[in-house]
Structures are given as structure tokens and as C-alpha cells.
Design a protein around this nucleic acid. Sequence first.
DNA 1: CGGCAGAATTGCAATCAATGCAGAAATACA
DNA 2: TGTATTTCTGCATTGATTGCAATTCTGCCG
Lengths: 205, 205
Amino acid sequence: MGLRERKKEQTRRSIEEAAFRLFEERGFHATTVADIADAADIAPRTFFAYFPSKEAVVFGDFDETFATLEARLRERPGGETTFEGLRAWIGELVDGDAHEPGDRDGLRRRLICDNDALAAHERHVMGRFERLIAESVAADLGDRPDDLQPRLVAAAAVAALMAMQPESPEGGKPTGAEGLARLDDAFAFLRGGIAALQERRAAAR
Amino acid sequence: MGLRERKKEQTRRSIEEAAFRLFEERGFHATTVADIADAADIAPRTFFAYFPSKEAVVFGDFDETFATLEARLRERPGGETTFEGLRAWIGELVDGDAHEPGDRDGLRRRLICDNDALAAHERHVMGRFERLIAESVAADLGDRPDDLQPRLVAAAAVAALMAMQPESPEGGKPTGAEGLARLDDAFAFLRGGIAALQERRAAAR
DNA sequence: CGGCAGAATTGCAATCAATGCAGAAATACA
DNA sequence: TGTATTTCTGCATTGATTGCAATTCTGCCG
């Protein structure tokens, strides 16, 4: 990787760090893009070369996560269901969870909780996961991604993901065991729902 | 109702009509709040006395709808599940669906489809329904609204609602019969999921 | 090394949403 | 009619976001 790319990465990280620090200190709304730019030693205009909006910084690492899931679902072993792949992926994710120093996840949740624009943006971002999952489910079933079953399963799956984190600001992602227990409860829901849909589908023939 | 209130209603409607008309003609992004104000014969500043944001106009009637569901869930007959109440409510909603001249639902969907900010806002709005449903489910089960099961059921229920409408712009809400068929498929999912969760809960004792 | 082509950064200006404030206008009510 | 509210406006300001054009940096070639 050339100097150019390295510098870009560095700048990007610098922006993210500055932003999160300021958000923590003053809150999301009270922090201006200009503030972030100052703190990150870049021109305000440059900020928008890295992030399309102030909200986007808060979800800066989601592109990667998204790509991870996409790869995991694409390279699924033979008989594995989207659903099983998803479960496995989350398991891995929760395990390797000692990343991001400074509890960025927790801060993010707190920020989202007291800012409507961020909450809306989060839901928007999760929509990408939903579509990805729907596509994968559709491929499994021979449906189209915008058919009912894939969409429902995807939506419920994302809801399960979200339900792993508390709605309220206190307490970040529950620790390993607890989180996985919640997850498996959620996936029991998903399994039951899928089974019911498939019965219905069979009956319709 | 006094003159004052009547006038306010009238102004509100005037703003909505102007807004939707302009949105249809030029698109959401290309229409400024000033444009809407001009078309509705009010000062730009006044717009924000009626709607908190440009996005909000597009969902201007959701407060009512929300109140309807809330009432329906609150005044549920004795043994009726939240889930059954919800199903019934939607049935009524789809029946009395000859409202809103000019296919406002369809236009709304089209607008949402080509504007990220609106899509995000829609999800935000649907979140209110989710919380409402979660509260009701929690009350049924003796859980708290932010416990796993209520949240999951609520999220899936809202997903079912959303799944009644196509993701793609073409074709608005499917016509009565078709829509209800989709709905019942979706609710089969929901029932199956709930059953699975409750089995799990029973097993855990 | 000198220098060019492409990429990244920056400054500037403009647009537009959103909000606080204070005065003007309208409505309610005694 | 006259006073208390409410609503509507105009004005000024802040901030996000974007287009454009000038400037600066990097990668690479001869």
C-alpha cells in the first residue's frame, strides 16, 4: 500500500477519533463539522471528502462490517443456510470483540439514544444489512429479494441483532455469554417464524 | 371547535397539499421549504410552526394513525392478544382505505424510494410503532418493553407491516385481497416465532 | 534529478434547513 | 370595546452540504 493510501487511512482515523472525542465531550449536536475539522487538522471542506455527512462518521466502521458479512454469506459452505451463516458470523463478531479502544460501541449507542437524526441514520444503515440478508435468503429459496419471505426473515434477523443491544443508554453490548444467550433466544424466534412460513408455503401447493 | 382551530387545520392541510404537489412535480430534494411556503401562502417561518422538518410533512398523517393503533391496543377486549389486536387493526385500516385522494401513499413511497433522508425518516417514524407494540406485548406477558421478546415481536410485526408494501417504487399498496394475503403470510411468521420463543421460555424453567 | 499526470486538499461562495427573538396581526373573551 | 392569548411574520444567525477552481502532494517516467 502506497504512501497515499496510508495517509488517507491515517486522516480518516484522525477524523473519526477527533469526532468521537468531541461527541463524547460536547454531544453530537453541539459539535460542528468545523470543530471536528479543527481537531483533526484538516480543512472543513476536506471532512466531506471522507464522510458524506456528520452522521456518517458515527457509523464509519460499518462499511467494513458490512463487507465481512457479505463475504461470509457469499462463501457459505454447501448446505449452510443464510440463517446459519448469519448466526456463525455474529458469533465470530462477538468473540473478536476486544477491538475499538475506548468503548466506541457504547459511546455510539449513547449518542444514538439522545439524537433523533442519529437514530434515524442508524436505522438507515441497518437497512443495508437487511437487504443483504434478504438477497441471501432469496437465493437460498429461489425467491426474489423483494418477496415477502426474504424480507421478513431479513427484517427479523436485523431486529435480533439490534435486540442484542439495550435500547437504553446504560450498559453497552451485554458481555459475551449474556449477549449470545439473547442472540439464541432471538434466533429461536427466527427459526420458528421461518418454519411457520414454510408450512404455509407447503400448504398452499 | 373555534375559528382558531379550524384555521389551523386548514393551514396545515394547505401546507401538506402544497408540499405533496411540489414534491410530485419536482421531487423532494428540489423543493425548498420556501417553495412550499409560497405555494401554501404562508411565511417560510410559519412552516416550522406546523412541521418540525421538511421530512415531517411527508409523514404528516402518521400521528393520527399512531393514535388509532394506540387506542385499539389500549381498549382491547379481555382475552385478545396484542398480536390479534394488531391484525384486526390492520384489517380495518386496509378496508377503510379509500381515503387520501391522489394516491398520497403511492407518492410517499415513490418519494421515499429516491431520497435517503426520507427513507431514514420513515424508519424513524416506524420506530414509534415498534415501541408502542413492544409496550403492549410486554404488558401481555408481564415483561418490560425493552426485554427481548417484546422488542423482537414488535420489530417483526413492523417488518410485516412494511412488507405489505413493495420496496420498489412501482405499484403502491397491493389491492385489498392481495395485501391481506401477504399480511397473513407475515403473521404466520410472527405466530411461529412467538410460539418458538415461548417454548424456549417454558423450557428454561 | 526534473517534471508531468492524477489525486487529494483547500478556500470561497452559495444554497438551504432550522431556530431564536421580537414585533405585528388575529382571535378569544369579559 | 379593550385586554389577554395565540399565531404569524420578518430578520438575523448558525451550520450542514455542495460546486468550483486554485493549489499542493504523490507516484512514476525518462
